[in-house]
Amino acid sequence: MRIRVLGCSGGIGGSLRTTALLVDDDVLIDAGTGVGDLPLEGLAKIDHIFVSHSHLDHVTSIPFLVDTVCWMRRTPIVVYAIAETLDILRSHLFNWKLWPDFTQIPDAEKPFMIYREIKVGETVEIDGRRITAIPANHTVPAVGYMLDSGKASLVYSGDTTVNDGLWKAVNEAKNLKYLVIETAFSNKEQDVATASKHLCPMTLASELAKMHGHPEVFITHLKPGEGALTMREIGVAAGRWRPRMLETGQEFSL
């Protein structure tokens, strides 16, 4: 299993792209602005999209992706998410007002896109790759994902604040190699982080203390303009785990 970071920023500007991870050539974990950097032939290979939650920075490329490649495909793109997230996408995105409903185009019998509901704790296996929805704690219903090749695994927290369910999943993973966890705000924005249900360096350190193993830790969702400050604060608060900043273009092998 190869995982390439297409985007990992908490915003846009210059080379910054919002969250999207490409698994091999055919699976997306979230679909932020980084998806748009793929060539057309790369976009056409994407068969599955696992959505952590409904916020725009994680779903913004789904409408453009489906609209761009639908005529190139013989099978629908499958969008996986928990029921609450799918309801939001149906009501507020693919609703014929903001964007066409591609689950009804060209018709309901042979659509360009279909939804698949998953539940927290459920594992979807695709060609031997296991993708499991794990708990997240955010301002909207949300999950993270564990990606498991059978040899090693990676946990992606999604957007979350203090979250004991995440650590239960992390600590039960016997082959965990990488942890990708958000820290959106610096310590001076702790009140904003708390209100918006994100982590800051102080809360990240408290959360990492719940982890039993020693995977490599990478920080995602840093806000533009505050990445250097936030990483310095993480180095002080969570230096024991030696977290590193996730970067667009970075690749992992499981």
Rank of each mutant, 00 (worst) to 15 (best):
G7Q: 02
C8I: 05
G10F: 01
G13C: 01
G14F: 08
R17V: 01
T18L: 10
A20N: 04
V23I: 14
D24T: 03
V27E: 00
L28W: 03
I29N: 00
G32V: 13
G32L: 13
G32N: 11
G34D: 07
V35D: 05
V35C: 06
V35M: 04
V35Y: 06
L38G: 01
L38H: 03
P39C: 03
L40A: 10
L40H: 15
G42P: 00
L43G: 03
A44C: 06
A44F: 04
A44R: 09
K45T: 05
I46S: 00
D47S: 05
D47Y: 00
H48E: 01
I49V: 13
H53Q: 13
D57R: 11
V59H: 02
S61K: 11
S61N: 13
I62C: 09
P63K: 14
P63M: 15
F64R: 14
F64I: 15
V66H: 06
V66N: 04
V66D: 06
D67F: 08
T68Q: 07
V69S: 05
W71M: 11
M72C: 06
M72G: 03
T75L: 14
V78D: 00
V79G: 03
V79M: 03
Y80R: 10
I88G: 07
L89Q: 10
S91R: 15
H92F: 14
F94A: 11
A108Y: 14
A108R: 15
F112I: 04
I114M: 04
I114W: 01
R116Y: 01
R116Q: 12
E117T: 15
G121W: 08
T123H: 05
T123R: 07
V124Q: 08
V124L: 08
E125A: 06
I126F: 01
I134Q: 12
H138T: 13
P141R: 11
V143P: 01
M146G: 06
M146L: 14
S149Q: 02
K151E: 10
A152Q: 03
S153R: 02
L154F: 08
Y156P: 00
D159W: 13
A169Y: 15
A169G: 12
N171G: 09
E172P: 02
A173L: 10
A173V: 13
N175R: 11
Y178D: 09
L179V: 07
L179A: 08
E182F: 02
S186D: 11
N187D: 10
N187F: 02
D191Y: 08
D191V: 12
V192D: 04
A193R: 05
T194I: 13
S196D: 05
K197M: 09
P201C: 02
A205S: 09
A209G: 03
P215H: 14
F218Y: 15
H221A: 04
L222S: 07
E226N: 09
G227Q: 10
V236P: 00
P243C: 01
R244D: 02
L246S: 04
E247D: 07
S253V: 14
